[in-house]
Design a protein around this nucleic acid. Structure first.
Lengths: 189, 189
DNA sequence: TCCTCATAGTCTCATTGATACGGTTGCGGA
DNA sequence: TCCGCAACCGTATCAATGAGACTATGAGGA
């Protein structure tokens, strides 16, 4: 009756509050934008809707600040902590979902001109490069802080797959008509 | 008035019909499951809802089969072809969205036991390995077919990032308490 | 004739996505 | 002291979506 209705956003909220301590939605949002959103996207309004729900479910407590903006500060309850840690320990179904419009376009590549494909590839190279750089910047900035070790870990894989993406799109840019890339040297295992 | 209301699913449908020729929703579904869904997920019901809309918009035409199940077969119109090719050629915003619950759990790794992290990592390794193998199987099966070159391309990057993921989770499994992996030998460029 | 399995398609409803909008606060300038 | 403006911060809205249970159809076997 309590556990069943928790979804990923619930755990995002519980997790953030658990890591940071009592937090406002806006604080959660700022944290999410520079970390969680890289591998788990959602509209920021969720961080205003969900905490209210969690209060109803007894997972969070809310205190309204006295002066100023009368912000709502949420803190986690024992019940919330329990739900979070159960979820964290439970085996989840394996499922990584990706939404990449550029790959969709490439998939339909037979229907477009070579030039368009090259342009697409260049855009993607640019984008992935920027993305990679932003991950690296964050890593550099925080790698000294030992407690952040787990928070930073996703950035590592981020860098790795941005690199894979860049290589991939470079190959497409080079041989747009046969992007499957039957390369001279095999990819190698 | 016509173009504005098209969304990614619209292009999935238009693209499939354009590639395959006249198709039923079920045929689209089968194709999507073994290709498009790897990098663009959506519930299969979309492939029944969306074609109807596209008919209303004049992008598809529908013929009902005479006998048997009276399936609806959709074919693309000139207008649909035009909309599709415009979209394919237009520069899109750069945005790749990922939803990976396992990374979310890892992000909150400070809150869980080392054992749990190792278990998580092992699950992920398993899953990504299977995923990688299924991509490779498809590649092998179809790589001889030249016209499929573009359709197969996304599988290439698929294999590459599954490999990156596997390596990543292996590192986590080895040093769960410091998954940022300040390795002996740097990842190397 | 009936059963069963794979195929094929529909339905529904709470939840979400996307984003525009509305207040608040603090700061610089006059 | 007051104004105006730009960042902050939070809310509201509503069609679209997600998820998956449910229904229907047909072919082949017993």
């Amino acid at each position: 009756m309590s556990t069943e209705s928790l979804n990923p956003i619930s755990y995002v909220v519980l997790g953030i509050v658990s890591l940071r301590g009592p937090s406002t939605s806006y604080e959660m949002k700022k944290l999410a934008e520079m970390s969680i959103n890289f591998f788990w996207t959602f509209p920021h309004a969720q961080l205003y809707r969900e905490p209210k729900r969690l209060v109803r479910l007894g997972m969070l407590e809310e205190q309204q600040q006295e002066g100023g903006r009368r912000r709502r500060v949420f803190s986690i309850t024992d019940r919330g902590r329990k739900a979070l840690s159960e979820w964290l320990s439970a085996p989840g179904p394996f499922d990584v979902q990706i939404h990449d419009l550029a790959l969709l376009k490439l998939f339909f590549g037979r229907l477009v001109s070579t030039d368009d494909l090259v342009a697409l590839a260049r855009e993607q190279i640019e984008g992935h490069r920027r993305q990679k750089e932003s991950y690296e910047a964050l890593l550099e900035r925080f790698e000294a802080v030992a407690e952040l070790s787990h928070q930073l870990a996703p950035l590592r894989i981020g860098v790795a797959y941005e690199e894979a993406y860049i290589q991939f799109w470079e190959a497409v840019a080079e041989r747009p008509s046969d992007p499957t890339g039957r390369r001279k040297r095999p990819t190698g295992r």
